[in-house]
């Protein structure tokens, strides 16, 4: 019988630790499929973050480095400079990692036009540490460190990283996507292809921001979480291509 579908070679067989309804599993597979389809598995070095994706090094079936919290773009810079333009170096970072503790590293990697690709998961909360407020947490959103809802007077409004990074000259491809529907999942995969393509074609820094879900820390079911992403996150974080060189 003909095989019509099989799991990508660029993922290991390790059972993932992610919660039911979490978007990480979807994005991991999309990234891995793109690596395999572009024939880049043997040239890829990944950089895993601190956060829920801290164990990404167990799942991506490529050489990989685990970075300190927020430092993945700096680690990726060091690796890319050694491995050269024929390699594919990507980081996989959450919103606490990238938009809070690692803002210097992400902004400066883009500023240098560092030829790396960044997969940025925005689920508006700290997952691994148990649901604290992130810079991307929406106004009024309740978390364990914003128990009365995020207050603009106290901690400002959520940060839009794609818009910010698109203003930087060194950015070659910046797109925001989501994983709340089949159509958006397919668009996310295409965005990852374009981001990796920008790197392979030596155009500069590339990033795909993926709006994703965290049912466990949002206190919602997986289905409710998809609805909340659509109703609450999409209006504040518009999808689309923010930079394409």
């Amino acid at each position: 019988m003909a095989v019509v579908f099989k799991k990508t070679e660029a993922l290991t067989d390790t059972v993932m630790h992610y919660c039911p309804g979490c978007g990480h599993g979807i994005v991991h597979r999309l990234v891995a499929e793109v690596i395999e389809e572009m024939g880049l598995q043997e040239k890829t070095v990944g950089v895993a973050p601190v956060g829920c994706a801290v164990f990404a090094y167990r799942y991506f079936n490529v050489d990989i480095q685990e970075a300190a919290h927020g430092r993945a773009p700096a680690v990726a810079t060091g690796a890319k400079r050694v491995l050269g333009p024929d390699s594919l170096v990507f980081t996989y970072q959450g919103d606490g990692d990238l938009a809070s503790i690692g803002t210097a590293e992400i902004v400066q990697a883009a500023h240098r036009g560092e030829k790396i690709s960044v997969i940025f998961i925005n689920n508006a909360i700290y997952g691994m540490t148990g649901g604290q407020m992130a810079p991307t947490t929406l106004l009024g959103q309740k978390t364990t460190t914003s128990p009365y809802g995020r207050d603009k007077e106290l901690c400002g409004s959520p940060i839009r990283m794609s818009e910010l990074l698109a203003t930087i000259e060194g950015s070659a491809y910046i797109e925001r996507t989501a994983v709340n529907s089949t159509a958006n999942i397919i668009k996310t995969k295409k965005a990852i292809q374009k981001a990796f393509g920008a790197q392979v074609n030596r155009k500069g820094f590339s990033l795909v921001e993926v709006l994703s879900t965290c049912p466990t820390n949002w206190g919602k079911s997986p289905v409710e979480s998809m609805d909340w992403l659509e109703e609450a996150m999409l209006p504040y974080y518009p999808l689309g291509v923010y930079k394409e060189v």
Partner: peptide, 17 residues
């Protein structure tokens, strides 16, 4: 690098490679 923090993490990435 943009900081000593970034520089040592670039060292990490390069040493790892």
């Amino acid at each position: 690098a943009e900081s000593e923090v970034a520089a040592i993490n670039m060292v990490y990435g390069a040493a790892g490679a």
